Computed example of a mutant assay.
Amino acid sequence: MAEGSMIDTASQNPVFRFAPSPNGPLHLGHALSAILNHDMARSAGGRFLLRIEDIDRTRCLPEHEALIYTDLAWLGLSWEKPVRRQSEHFAEYRAALTRLIDLGLVYPSFMTRGEVKARVAAFEADGKHWPRDPDGSPLYPPDDRDLSEASRRQLIAQDVRHAWRLDMRRAMEIAGERLDWLETGDDVGGRVAADPSIWGDVVLSRSDAPSSYHLSVVVDDALQAVTHVVRGMDLFQATSVHRLLQRLLGLPQPTYHHHRLIADPDGRKLSKSQGDTGIAALRAAGATLSDIRATVGL
């Protein structure tokens, strides 16, 4: 399937985007990414978009979204409107998922996290090593991928909760020729070989979330004609999955720029889940925009 059938990014003006999730206050790492996207867009004479990635309706809250706008405006950034909110575009993600299902590249997976954990623990009890993805999570067992169509239909008819996973082996076969991407980041430059197989059969949709990050981000980037994806090095390896999905869905490939991460004094990257100091708290403590830019090395 030819890539780039939706939008020809080569004919577009440069388009950059900052895409936070409203599941907590933005921290200095977000400030670095947002400012880089904004400044690079302006330098290239391009466009700067803001996208709210709020698929997780449990953790993503309106008050966090409102604070994102406040923080970014205080950082001196301006963006095009209207802002794209993922929660308003579930039908588009479902259409992409259905296309992959129709191609026979996605299957329903029924094992719970607890069942996967037990399977891995039993396997490793004998001293063997279960394969893991770059984030350290065990790869999903092959049981559901190998189920017959009749068994799958029966389980779905019984309303057994399930996710939809990409059949990585088949997807790689269909994708065909070598996958890579153009990287202009801090630590790596040039063409980078993509190896999606290291992630195993990734989730594309769950029973409690109609799309995964992987699926929604490639659909959004294509629909918004994004030409340059600027984000942290923590997402460098995930780009392999995104390139595969772009190939399978016939979507254009942006240029990628993965920037350094902001770490705490112990060398750990900043995280909302760890309660790292947010931009709003720094502002309330008297920090200035110049202070923020200096702290993140700009």
Rank of each mutant, 00 (worst) to 15 (best):
R206T: 00
L235Q: 10
I262W: 01
A194V: 13
T239M: 11
K117S: 13
A95C: 00
S137H: 13
R85M: 05
K272Q: 06
D126S: 15
V106E: 11
D266A: 15
A163C: 14
L235V: 11
S207D: 13
L100I: 04
Q274V: 05
D220K: 12
I55G: 03
I262G: 01
A225Y: 13
R51G: 00
P108G: 08
D187W: 09
L282K: 07
R191W: 13
E177M: 08
P82T: 06
E149W: 09
P142E: 00
A175R: 03
W199M: 00
I68D: 02
T255E: 06
I292W: 06
T58Q: 11
R206D: 08
G275S: 12
T9P: 02
V83S: 01
P138L: 07
H89G: 00
L270P: 14
Y107S: 02
Y93I: 00
G278Q: 05
H38L: 01
I156H: 08
S43G: 02
A163I: 06
Q237W: 10
P25I: 00
P62D: 03
G4T: 08
T70R: 13
K269S: 04
T277D: 05
E124W: 06
V15G: 01
E173D: 15
V120C: 09
G250H: 11
D8K: 08
V241I: 14
A281Y: 04
G29T: 09
P134Y: 09
L204C: 05
H228N: 07
S211A: 15
K269Y: 05
Y107G: 08
S5W: 11
T288V: 09
S137K: 11
A175M: 12
A73G: 04
P142S: 08
E115T: 10
D167L: 11
G286W: 12
A125E: 10
V116T: 10
A284S: 03
L215W: 02
A44W: 14
A281T: 15
R113N: 05
L97I: 02
W199G: 00
W130D: 00
A150M: 03
I101Q: 15
A91F: 08
V192F: 13
R178W: 06
T227W: 14
Y93T: 00
L28E: 08
D220I: 02
A157D: 12
G46V: 10
S21E: 12
M6C: 10
S197K: 05
V202W: 01
E63L: 05
E124Q: 05
Y107H: 07
L182K: 13
Q274L: 11
D291K: 03
P22G: 01
S43F: 14
H129Y: 05
V160F: 09
M111V: 12
Q154R: 15
S33V: 13
D276N: 14
G250P: 08
R293T: 14
I279W: 02
E3V: 12
